[in-house]
Amino acid sequence: MALSSSHLLGLEGVPADDIRTILDTAENIKTIFDRPIPKVPTLRGITVVNLFFEASTRTRISFELAEKRLSADTVNFSSSTSSVKKGETLKDTVRNIAAMKINMIVIRHSAAGAAYFLTQCTDATIINAGDGQHEHPTQALLDMMTLREKWGQLAGKKVAIIGDVMHSRVAGSNIRGLLTMGAEVMVCGPKTLIPPGLHEFGVNVSYDIDEAIGWADALNVLRIQLERQEKGLFPTLREYHAEFGITRERIERAKKELIIMHPGPINRGVELDSDVADSDASIILDQVTNGVAVRMAVLVLLSGMDSNESSG
């Protein structure tokens, strides 16, 4: 099994077969987690650099764990201020690191296209761990894996992405992946946080949270950042919660089975109430567990190593 691309820059243009391969591999790999020693030697001798130019806790830890469980050698480079400010360009940073003979780079960066840019600076395999407001493919893959575990398949299912879609790379990748897999997608949030042109991609747009809840089989609730309020995109967190917050009353009113997801970290009481986040409908912690499995699958598949070895 191999993927049709040598990097994972996003889910744009990634065929359904590739997504299926990654999710199948991840499910296979997940069985390792229950072993007494949850570690395989698949990536022994492979060096992976985690290049994080933006603050990140869970994605970085998830990748690091994935790499360690595959026995890869890992190095972390974190810099909240971009290296441009230190007088070194991204290109130089990457070329310097690549000169130390590394195999794979996991990059998180505030600029859209940064992962793509790296493919032009180095021969190493690039995995995008989030570039600006563009894509965050492993997040969407873990979301799809978690939904598939619940549903058996994604085709024909309805997923509503709620909140700050405009600034969300999680939404960017989820929309692409879900549509490729035959699911239907709706986005719902204040008009100020919905980017233009989404209908052209085949995405439903709603500004009414109850409509979205009524429509969807699953809600993927995005994190709302206070800084959006400061930019005048919505008046207050209070009003955001009143208009778009996912509350138990709203869920109950829909009178149906609904899956609740969140890429984390949750602002409890803003976009998602605690009693919903911690309810049986929530698969938020499964997402986190699956995140490691999906990232292991991506690392293995892109490394060119035999993926059967990692679960066998």
Binding site: E12, G113, G132, H134, P196, G197, L198, F201
Partner: peptide, 13 residues
């Protein structure tokens, strides 16, 4: 430019 492409590329428009 702000539009479908900026949404696609995730670049502020």
């Amino acid at each position: 430019n702000e539009g479908t492409m900026s949404t696609k590329l995730g670049i502020p428009g």
